[in-house]
């Protein structure tokens, strides 16, 4: 642009940079602080951002290793952080797998088949996801309490109950996958059908391999959705060994038992991988969706 720049322009640029750097400092402050706190000795130690003495006691506890305090006392981990992380990863992976299976098949029918009630079902799914599960917590508790009286495996305090409760949340993913299927030309599957493929074979062997990018994205989104889910898990899980990270983490910060340093280490240990997965999903989402657009 050939525009004459006045004198105030330079100052505006500098002001913008100053503002952004200040804002970033505010935004990043909690992250840097938590890293610093995780390396300070003790749970109440105050100090500068760069700790004077570095101690790995909180990291040891987070990793489930006991350590010997300076006064000779053996400090054992208060909470099984790694077990919670494993619980979270287990529940989230299985949930993502179930969600993916249920939503890819449903999206195939919505994208490629004609049947009565299609618009109604699609609209219903859209409407459904406007009402969050947190509003039905009482009923979810009552339902799994009842199921548990017959099948303890699926009752309160079981991971299976969580899987079932999460398995219904397919609405958004069905829409996402259907949108992607719509960009893939139907002629390829029709060619397969002319060669004698059943609709199932056309779906399984022709369409699914082409839709792989979106399946990865949906898997990761469902995985993250399950791993950060708090309300339903807090109602269904009570026993300490069964908790997921989202429910267990808050036990660190009770007024009566304030384990600030231990929490900091546990938060980084569990938060970092989830954050990386999320950023990965974001990247894939953008590249996956554009790749689909070019193919279509």
């Amino acid at each position: 642009m050939a525009i004459v720049l006045d004198k105030s322009h330079r100052w505006r640029v500098i002001a913008a940079h100053a503002f952004l750097i200040g804002l970033i400092a505010l935004v990043i402050f909690p992250f840097l602080m938590i890293l610093s706190i995780s390396l300070r000795p003790g749970n109440f130690a105050a100090g500068s951002l760069i700790p004077e003495t570095i101690s790995f006691e909180h990291w040891k506890l987070a990793l489930g290793i006991s350590y010997t305090a300076p006064d000779g006392r053996l400090v054992k981990p208060d909470f099984p952080v790694l077990l919670w992380l494993w619980n979270s990863v287990k529940v989230a992976s299985l949930t993502a797998l179930i969600t993916l299976t249920l939503s890819t098949t449903a999206a195939y029918a919505f994208a490629r088949m004609k049947f009565r009630g299609k618009q109604f079902a699609l609209g219903g799914l859209m409407l459904m996801q406007m009402f969050p599960a947190v509003l039905a917590l009482v009923a979810i508790f009552a339902i799994f309490d009842r199921i548990g009286s017959v099948f303890p495996f699926f009752g309160i305090d079981s991971h299976a109950s969580l899987l079932l409760a999460y398995s219904g949340g397919i609405a958004l993913h069905v829409w996402t996958i259907k949108g992607y299927y719509d960009t893939i030309p139907v002629e390829i599957e029709e060619a397969a059908k002319v060669d004698g493929a059943t609709p199932w074979q056309a779906f399984r062997l022709v369409l699914l391999p082409m839709a792989l990018p979106i399946l990865m994205v949906v898997f990761l989104l469902a995985f993250i959705g399950a791993i950060i889910e708090y309300p339903v898990a807090s109602v269904l899980l009570h026993e300490e060994a069964k908790l997921t990270l989202a429910v267990g983490s808050k036990l660190f910060l009770y007024d009566q038992k304030y384990l600030w340093g231990d929490f900091a280490a546990a938060a980084i240990l569990s938060g970092l991988p989830i954050t990386l997965v999320f950023i990965l999903a974001q990247k894939w989402m953008i590249s996956g969706l554009t790749a689909g657009g070019i193919k279509g």
Partner: peptide, 25 residues
């Protein structure tokens, strides 16, 4: 009901674990 063979598991899960809890609430 061929199309519903693909829809049934997903829709059933959504009805049982999302819609039913709301109605039950």
């Amino acid at each position: 009901t061929y199309a519903w063979r693909y829809l049934f598991p997903g829709i059933a899960a959504a009805l049982i674990f999302v819609v039913f809890p709301m109605v039950y609430t």
